[in-house]
Amino acid sequence: MSELVIETTGLRKEFRSRRGGLRVAVQGLDLAVPAGGVHGFLGPNGSGKTTTIRMLLGLARPTAGTMRLFGRPVPAQLPHVIGRVGAVVESPKFSPNFSGRRNLQLLAGAIGATPARVDHAIETVRLTGRDKDRYRSYSLGMKQRLAIAATLLKQPDLMILDEPTNGLDPAGIREIRETIRDLGSSGVTVLLSSHILAEVQQVCTSATIIGAGRLLASGTVDELLGSGSAYRLVAPDTAAAAEVLDRAGFVPSHVDGAVHVEADDPGELTRVLGEAGIWLTELAPLRADLESYFLELTEGEQLGEPTAAQRAGGAA
Score class of each variant (00 low, 15 high):
G20K: 12
V33S: 08
E268Y: 09
R271H: 14
D119A: 12
Q27R: 15
P79V: 03
Y138F: 15
A258S: 13
D237C: 11
S229I: 07
L106V: 14
Y231Q: 07
Q105V: 10
Q302V: 09
G172S: 01
H120E: 13
A149I: 01
A312P: 03
R247K: 12
S292H: 11
L106Q: 07
G184E: 09
R247V: 08
P285L: 02
A241E: 05
P285A: 00
T220L: 05
R174T: 01
E163L: 04
G228R: 07
I82D: 02
L269I: 15
P44S: 10
A149W: 00
R232V: 06
I53G: 06
T9W: 12
M142P: 03
D182V: 08
I111Q: 08
E90F: 04
H254W: 08
P62W: 03
G141Q: 03
G46D: 06
T270Y: 12
A242K: 07
E3V: 11
G21E: 15
E199G: 02
G100Q: 00
G267K: 13
L57H: 10
T114L: 12
R54G: 05
D246Q: 14
V88D: 01
S253V: 11
N103W: 00
T208W: 08
A242Q: 15
P75G: 00
Y293S: 02
